[in-house]
Design a protein around this nucleic acid. Structure first.
Length: 828
RNA sequence: GCGAGGGUGGCGGAACUGGUAGACGCACUGGACUUAGAAUCCAGCGCUUCGGCGUGGGGGUUCAACUCCCCCCCCUCGCACCA
């Protein structure tokens, strides 16, 4: 009986498919469980990261199914996007063809891996039957005022020839091609994700059980809430006011200068006629042209230039100089900052450099009185207010409240909250995306397309440009259209939607994928949402996961969703490395899953991905490692081959209790392994230790099988343990297990079986190993009956020769007894 | 700087509410089988001057610390002139 993975794997894939083993029911008495992995972009081939991701998810899906859940485990394709377009240009083909060919290829690869998807629910986002609903959402967002058009400087990737959302710019570089991102003034569509900023932040607290802490932190940082106040400073010699945002309004008495961004809208006006005009303009231009990458840790020296103008600190009445400074961001707050050198490190450095006055207004109680001349750094700590008029003596936290109140009373400003989060630019100047369903009419202006006219089809008969420009503006059959309102001449929007819009709601579409009257029904969503377990890479910690959370909240407010959050539990799996580095096609260090499957079979590849490390951690691919996994699979196969025909086909954990030594020991191990594997999968996704536990069971079976085959009770114990082994390994190596179970004599499928149930009685041991310690050091072990009395165990411990050797001539101070575990003799 | 996660044999990694550190696997060594090798099966495998010493370093609590407390070092990831 030879192990031939290629044959048996294809055989069982066919059988499962024919029997619909992994189809999930829309109605069921069983509790629902929605297990989802981040769907793949059809880039060409499945890579090892996919295999790991989907192997993890498949264990969860199988396990939940075996525990009696109705499991939704779907798969689909995130099929719009730039790579298709770039590849199409390069290979002189069409993005659609490239995409669909890749999908066909990757679908076959996933099927070859034997994952337990309900393939009837497969979705493809570039299919009009998918994106038509996205266009409907676009209209809903527009109708609800959550979508608007605005002309503003945008992140522009010159290589991709399109704008990027803030989330898609990493350290000043394009997230996809790493080109330096430029700023370009464009009119774009924005989703008002900032309307949900407060809720997106607050609801992270509801995810603390199910999401990794670091993802929550990353989202909190990204949303970036700052509570403070806006304060207006009148400009001297003019009617203007400069408004600043600050979180430290308690330090306003210490504001000794004003700094504004080079792009501040008032700058022109301030400079007009000033003697410093041309110098300051040159300086501002230099800042504006500086490379964005220079921000952050390697930011250049703080630089500024006095504008020649002053404004008035409304609390002190002092005139303070207005500076243009390179560290003030035009896009955050109001683009102007009050300089409080004594209590802000950045302002402190700036003041020292340009000899601006430093004024202490907070005195921490634990510090000696602060003196500006001797300070070496700003003091940001809490303390009592000083030099602050009527507020003197207040703790600064209380001062924040009082000053905010006073601002509002006197009309000098107001309480304010600032967010780092910006609205989401969803316009893309590329072809391979979902068309935006609006037109621009010569008489009516912008008009949404009528719902009944959806989908607005992306034309497939276009001529692509070699320079990556979208062909849509040059395709009259697409953009020449009629106004939905007046039927006059109109031009269709030629920008397409960001592909992250597709992935922000696909998990909802799986609940009702064939619905051609609506994206989904509230009933289907209520039945399945939220996703119980979501699994994917941490690289989506902000982008996709934040957008999806926003979408769910918005769709809830439109009346679709019943839940507040899409993903109840999130597992971020680690990367598969090769030689300590991320696998990368361009660097040539990849391991091709197809090759590995051809050599070892899908079961082995899956098993290795799960055994090599806990799922959240990165692991290094090693040839020796997969050899080891293959060896174990072979070991299970040979064990079964040896036992088949000699042992009865028993259900897992079905062998009766026995008092005989090895039989009793095997049965104990069998039941203990069922408990351990179940616990490991349930509590912490500890697949590596779950597999290790089954290895131990298999090892024991090898050791005892010759002896147990001699007796009927022994054969029963082996038959039961073998069945248990196959059931426990089924989520990991499903084909192997089905095949062996069939050969063992079963006609039913493992795919239809429930998880084995251990009995507590079998876990009870009649003897225990008692560890003997003297002063906490290991000095021996005793094998004793489990029900031995405390006194008897202590006596036996003290009588142990090695214990006696180490206690000889010393007085015994006490004897610690831990039932079933150890005796520690304390001497001095 | 802030936040999160780590630091355990030659390697990947175990160790539940403090109670045998190193499960399981890899590599390595020996044995069996074999004409031989591969494969397989069995056994050994932290260091050691054989007293002991060992979970990044130093203190502490405890009969007992990888685990709890205090101080420090290093690595990975994320965020960061955000006012």
């Amino acid at each position: 009986m030879k192990y031939q993975p290629q044959e048996i794997e294809k055989k069982w894939q066919r059988i499962w498919e024919e029997r619909g083993s992994f189809h999930c029911a829309d109605t069921s008495d069983k509790p629902k469980y929605y297990c989802l992995e981040m769907f793949p972009y059809p880039s060409g081939d499945i890579h090892m990261g996919h295999v790991r991701n989907y192997s993890i998810a498949d264990v969860v899906a199988h396990f939940k199914r075996m525990q009696g859940h109705n499991v939704l485990h779907p798969i689909g394709w995130d099929a719009f996007g730039l790579p298709a377009e770039n590849a199409a240009i390069k290979h002189k083909t069409h993005p659609a063809k490239w995409t669909y060919d890749n999908i066909a290829n990757m679908r076959a690869q996933l099927k070859r891996l034997g994952f337990s998807y309900d393939w009837r629910r497969e979705i493809t986002t570039c299919d009009p039957e998918y994106y038509r609903w996205e266009q409907l959402f676009f209209l809903k967002f527009l109708e609800k005022g959550l979508l608007y058009r605005k002309k503003a400087p945008q992140n522009w990737c010159p290589t991709c020839n399109t704008v990027l959302a803030n989330e898609q710019v990493e350290e000043g570089l394009c997230w996809r091609c790493e080109s330096v991102v430029e700023q370009k003034e464009l009119t774009q569509w924005f989703l008002r994700i900032t309307d949900y900023a407060e809720e997106l932040l607050a609801d992270l607290d509801t995810l603390t059980e199910g999401w990794p802490e670091r993802v929550l932190t990353m989202q909190r940082n990204w949303i970036g809430k700052s509570v403070g106040a806006e304060i207006s400073f009148p400009v001297e010699g003019g009617g203007e006011r400069i408004t600043v945002f600050t979180t430290r309004q308690d330090t306003v008495f210490g504001a000794t200068f004003m700094s504004i961004a080079a792009a501040h809208p008032l700058l022109d006006e301030l400079l007009a006629g000033s003697p410093a005009e041309s110098a300051v303009r040159d300086f501002a231009r230099k800042i504006l042209n500086a490379d964005q990458r220079d921000l952050g840790p390697d930011a250049p020296e703080k630089e500024g230039m006095f504008t020649g103008r002053y404004c008035v600190n409304p609390f002190t009445g002092e005139r303070i100089p207005i500076w243009v400074a390179n560290f003030v961001l035009a896009g955050y707050g109001t683009g102007a900052v009050m300089g409080v050198p004594a209590h802000d490190q950045r302002d402190f450095e700036f003041a020292r450099k340009y000899a601006l006055p430093i004024k202490v207004v907070i005195q921490p109680e634990s510090m000696a009185p602060l003196r500006p001349e001797t300070m070496e750094a700003a003091v940001a700590e809490a303390g009592r207010m000083v030099n602050s008029g009527e507020f003197n003596g207040l703790p600064n936290e209380e001062g924040k409240l009082r000053i905010a109140e006073r601002l509002e009373q006197k009309g000098l400003g107001r309480r304010s909250i600032n967010w780092r989060l910006r609205d989401w630019n969803v316009s893309r100047q590329r072809y391979w995306g979902a068309p935006i369903p609006v037109v621009y009419c010569e008489t009516c202006g912008m008009q949404p397309e009528k719902e009944e006219n959806l989908p607005v089809l992306l034309p497939l008969d276009v001529v692509t440009h070699d320079d990556c420009r979208s062909p849509l503006p040059d395709t009259p059959s697409f953009h020449e259209c009629r106004c939905p309102k007046c039927n006059g001449k109109a031009r269709r929007e030629t920008d397409t939607m960001d592909t992250f819009v597709e992935s922000s709601w696909y998990f909802g579409r799986y609940t009702d994928p064939a619905n051609n009257e609506a994206p989904f029904t509230p009933e289907a969503l209520a039945r399945w949402m939220p996703v119980d377990q979501y699994i994917g890479g941490v690289e989506h910690a902000i982008l996709h996961l934040l957008y999806s959370r926003f979408f769910v909240k918005a769709l809830r407010d439109f009346g679709y969703m019943a839940c507040d959050e899409p993903f109840a539990n999130l597992l971020t799996q680690g990367m598969v490395l090769l030689g300590g580095r991320k696998m990368s096609k361009s660097k040539g260090n990849t391991v091709d899953p197809t090759e590995m499957i051809a050599r070892y079979g899908a079961d082995t590849v899956r098993l290795f991905c799960l055994f090599a490390a806990p799922p959240e951690r990165d692991f290094d691919w090693t040839d020796a490692g997969i050899e080891g996994a293959f060896r174990f699979v072979g070991r299970v196969w040979r064990l079964a081959a040896d036992l088949i025909g000699k042992v009865p086909a028993m259900a897992p954990c079905a062998a009766p209790a026995s008092s005989l030594g090895k039989i009793r020991e095997l049965r104990h191990k069998e039941h203990a392994t069922v408990k351990k594997v179940g616990d490991d999968i349930t509590s912490r996704f500890q697949f590596n230790t779950a597999i290790a536990a089954v290895m131990e069971l298999v090892n024991l079976m090898y050791l005892v099988k010759d002896e147990l085959l001699e007796t009927e009770a022994g054969r029963a114990a082996l038959g039961s343990s073998l069945s248990t082994t196959l059931a426990l390994l089924f989520p990991f190596t499903p084909h192997l297990c089905e095949e062996l179970r069939e050969r063992l004599g079963f006609s039913s499928l493992l795919a239809d079986q429930l998880w084995p149930v251990y009995s507590d009685e079998a876990l009870v041991r009649d003897t225990v190993t008692i560890v003997l310690q003297v002063n906490g050091k290991l000095r021996g072990k005793l094998e004793l009956a489990a029900d031995e009395s405390e006194d008897a165990v202590k006596a036996a411990a003290l009588a142990d020769p090695n214990v006696q050797k180490h206690t000889e001539g010393q007085s015994i101070r006490k004897v610690i007894f831990v039932p079933g575990k150890l005796v520690n003799v304390v001497v001095n």
